[in-house]
Design a protein around this nucleic acid. Structure first.
Lengths: 196, 196
DNA sequence: GTCTATATCATGATAGAC
DNA sequence: GTCTATCATGATATAGAC
């Protein structure tokens, strides 16, 4: 029962991930030391290396898991219906999902520079897979005559950029509820894709 | 005439700024050492301190100058006309100006975390001053009945986020010219603000 | 699985010669 | 204004005891 040293625990691994995610988002990967992470977890620096081979792998695994969760999150929705309905579902999903994970989102596109080339390529691949979701919805809407954009690829990137912007300013408990924010952005996205 | 040591120069200061801007954008402020900057400039690390009191001041001055240049760039345009015309001028200005300075733009919102609280407050103030430009245009358009958005503040942030997204993908010499990109984004911005 | 201790190296910044 | 040399500190990662 009694531990001979420290406060060992079965959940040290997840705790390391949570602490690292928060610290990387707050100060940046390069500015956070393994000692800092260890201190906030409540272990010594050396103990971290039972859970990750090195700092780089820790960063990569955080980003990879986040992107997998986003892709799985959309898959679970299995949205169907008209392009307009799917667009609404995507906008609400994207905003809601990203606002729930501000740190992971922040890291996923702020720390791309700090990945090794191989890790960068894998993360980039996952990101592109996610972008195909709105791109296909847009194309379906164009084919159905519901949307009118001269360049679907650019329109997709513009929509994603607009939606990502929410994370820079929205804070729970502020002037607007999540649903109101979703409504506002869906309104703008719909109009931006309309025949005008 | 002859220098006794190294290759001293009247333009070492500007060179330091250019090198630092490029390196900070590529690898991040925390990941770039003063020795790296010095090496690329062609001087020893100690020499940098003739031009900046410390690394933090170097970062801050890069961001501050960039934001001043953006504000002056718009002031110089002295755009007038209907809200629709001013909106078009702003969209084109913002995209063009930001695509000309990708490194400075990247730093200006990626390295906010690495500013001291006082420096952060000053940079944040300049950024907010810039945001008032599109916000006033939007409000004028609403008052004139040309635009219809339920929340002007959110709409402003959404438009800026969309425009900022251009910097993540546009590369000169690609599929689209700068003017075509401006046209595409202006089309989407206009429609997103319309009565729909 | 965590600890202590340490190897090895890089960092920001400064001092003083020239 | 730049150099060389250095201080003091902190970094990642590893080794071996328990």
């Amino acid at each position: 029962m009694a531990r001979t040293q420290g406060s060992s625990s079965d959940i040290t691994g997840p705790r390391i991930r949570r602490v690292a995610e928060r610290l990387f988002a707050q100060a940046g990967y390069a500015a956070v030391s393994m000692r800092q992470i260890a201190a906030e977890v409540g272990v010594q620096a050396g103990a971290l290396y039972n859970y990750t081979p090195d700092k780089q792998s820790l960063l990569f695994s955080l980003m990879e898991r986040h992107l997998h969760e986003v892709l799985e999150g959309w898959d679970t929705l299995k949205s169907t219906g008209t392009p307009q309905e799917q667009l609404a579902a995507f906008v609400r999903f994207h905003i809601g999902f990203h606002l729930e994970r501000p740190d992971a989102v922040f890291i996923a596109y702020m720390e791309l520079r700090n990945l090794t080339p191989e890790n960068f390529a894998r993360v980039e691949g996952l990101r592109r897979r996610y972008e195909t979701i709105p791109e296909r919805i847009l194309q379906a809407g164009i084919d159905a005559g519901e949307f009118a954009v001269p360049d679907p690829r650019v329109a997709t990137l513009a929509v994603i950029a607009m939606l990502n912007g929410v994370n820079t300013w929205y804070r729970p408990g502020g002037r607007l509820t999540l649903e109101q924010v979703e409504d506002l952005y869906l309104d703008m996205v719909r109009k931006s894709l309309s025949a005008g």
